[in-house]
Write a protein that binds this DNA or RNA. Structure first.
Lengths: 121, 121
DNA sequence: CAAATAACTTTACAATGTAAAGTATATATA
DNA sequence: TATATATACTTTACATTGTAAAGTTATTTG
């Protein structure tokens, strides 16, 4: 955490933080052997164009490995997390957890409004 | 959660999800009686221009109440969460928690990489 | 063989985050 | 008491980027 800016959340990498890409990465970490273009499309509820561009961004950032091949006669793209991608995503998740702890743990955040919060029963 | 798109994370309201505004809201929920422009500026490590614009966005969305007055002879702006803002932020936090649970709870996310994860010791 | 479908990619646009410049007032300084 | 500097913001202009519509290539289907 930045010395004087406890709420700056520097670790929230923009490449990961974007909603659509957060969906993609979460999908991928739940499927270690990768997911096809169409599986991602429906899991994340993204249009073809969006998914294509977001996957490209993730690939350029080295977070996702994209494999283009053929399934029968049709092109078939598979995406999977790279080791670096997995690590960076984990780092991001740790920062997310800090956000949650800071916010949900605040005095003015009444527990009843955050039912299943971090604190175990 | 959307029926067929478990990883779409529809509840991640863009107005809140943006990094700088997430900082501002987290600061504000930790300070129920509000924060001044300058306090926010240093807590969130934002420039004057950024803070001004982001606060305006939050105000227009009805999440934050902005009070402009004078402290001695100098202008003094105070920001505080509105009740609606608090509720929406809580909703957002619940969705964030879903992200964390989906991701950190995934089989391929080894526990050691997420040290202080959701699961209690 | 024409039309439609599949699996993407490219492009163009609109939204938006950011920082530099601007404004207005107050205080310090020479 | 001018002049300069500081305070507390706001406005503007730019550059990035998320999004959807249109385009591409190949393959089925009627």
């Amino acid at each position: 955490m930045t010395a004087d800016a406890p709420f700056a959340f520097d670790g929230l990498d923009r490449v990961i933080h974007e909603k659509a890409r957060l969906s993609i990465l979460t999908s991928l970490i739940s499927h270690a052997d990768g997911l096809s273009f169409n599986e991602l499309k429906s899991l994340c509820a993204l249009t073809d164009g969006n998914l294509s561009r977001h996957v490209a961004v993730l690939q350029e950032a080295g977070l996702v490995a994209v494999t283009k091949g053929f399934e029968g006669n049709r092109p078939h793209t598979t995406c999977a997390l790279t080791p670096a991608g997995r690590q960076k995503f984990m780092d991001y998740l740790n920062e997310l957890e800090r956000v949650l702890k800071n916010a949900a743990g605040a005095p003015s955040a009444s527990p009843s409004t955050v039912p299943g919060s971090l604190k175990p029963a």
